[in-house]
Amino acid sequence: MIDETDRRIVNTLQDGFPLASRPFAIKARELGIDENDLISRVARLRASGVVTRFGPFLNAENFGGGFCLCAMSVPQDKWATAVDLVNAQPEVAHNYRREHRLNMWFVLAVEDRDEIAGVARRIETATGLAVLLFPKEREYFLDMRVSA
């Protein structure tokens, strides 16, 4: 379980982490707790999986790379194998099960946007299932933050 202080930490650190010699000390002061307390809480939030990532978030599009949302329709008897095969690809940044005939939705993140089609073909060959590509044609607004 996470307490009120943990929630404040999650909300504050979604917005940004300082580039400074003692960044935890700066954030701890803002939160009104001490540096060691913040460090041990961040370590615990990370270890328990409340925070899945802590660090720089790359925008691949600004160095020649790209992202692509993909979907597959995976029959139940092939589900476990398909999860293993798809997740084993380093280009798969995240993968969600969804309630739909298209039941597996994942995002490919590549350093060279020309690689997307090839990675999708590799997954089709490995799984024997079709991969539908849903590249972003336009982004309207992006605010990944949620309120904890």
Binding site: L13, T52, F57, L58, N62
Partner: peptide, 26 residues
């Protein structure tokens, strides 16, 4: 290291530095 990270933030190579929470666990 600090200067390089700041430059990558300025160029947009790094979108931000911070947390990604697990929505389910929240």
């Amino acid at each position: 290291v600090l200067a390089r990270l700041q430059a990558m933030l300025d160029r947009g190579v790094v979108r931000r530095i911070g947390f990604a929470p697990n929505h389910y666990k929240l």
